[in-house]
């Protein structure tokens, strides 16, 4: 049986977490639109208690190859933050941003480090707006980038949940670039113990 770290007041707490995703990703979308000099929209975040097995389905399944920038959040409310994009979106981003002649297959050293830097900027702005909003001390590790199967990458962010159940709370926000679906996702997976800290920082009554 999986335990729900959100406890009671579930619907209300889900709304608070949506707002957390909204503020974080909203700020990151602004950063991205400045980089691209183009409007970048995002969908309303979804917050769900999702079985491990289904998390990768959000980005095309366990074996879907994605580019992921991962950073571990330390400080008052630890958690895992992923910025995930599909390969065609990544190539488009590199073409638009750097006017690069990108490789058809694979990634050059330059492309790889540019993507890492984009992810770094976006994840950093997500996190800093979250820290401002909650007044919590949140300190990111140096981001790491990987191009690999979504299942292999995302399972890494589930270890903290594995010890207490078979599902995790996921705050998912999707980016859109103009009308084009950029298929960029922010996944924030706070550690189970972080919810009470986030809620009390935002004045949500504890049960």
């Amino acid at each position: 049986m999986s335990m729900n770290p959100l406890g009671s007041l579930e619907a209300f707490k889900m709304d608070v977490l949506k707002e957390v995703g909204n503020i974080g990703a909203g700020n990151a979308a602004t950063a991205l639109s400045r980089l691209l000099d183009k409007p970048v929209d995002m969908n309303v975040p979804t917050v769900s208690l999702i079985p491990f097995e289904q998390i990768a389905d959000k980005v095309g399944g366990n074996e879907q190859v994605v580019i992921a920038v991962f950073l571990r959040v330390e400080g008052d409310a630890p958690g895992n933050l992923f910025f995930i994009i599909h390969e065609d979106s990544a190539k488009r981003l590199l073409r638009n941003l750097l006017s690069m002649d990108v490789l058809e297959e694979g990634y050059s050293e330059m492309e790889y480090s540019a993507l890492g830097e984009i992810g770094n900027i976006l994840a950093g702005s997500y996190l800093s707006s979250l820290a401002d909003f909650t007044q919590l001390y949140l300190s990111p590790t140096v981001p790491a980038i990987a191009v690999d199967m979504a299942g292999a990458i995302l399972s890494y962010g589930l270890v903290q949940y594995g010890e207490m159940g078979d599902s995790a709370v996921l705050i998912d926000t999707t980016f859109l670039e103009g009308k084009e679906e950029m298929a960029g996702h922010f996944f924030l997976i706070p550690d189970p113990e972080s919810f009470n800290k986030i809620f009390s920082a935002l004045g949500v009554p504890n049960e």
Partner: peptide, 22 residues
Amino acid sequence: GMADLKVAAGGAILKTTGLGSC
């Protein structure tokens, strides 16, 4: 699946996808 186990026999294929640290 993830955190799952299965038994098979007689030529069936056991498959698991997207192993990272698992």
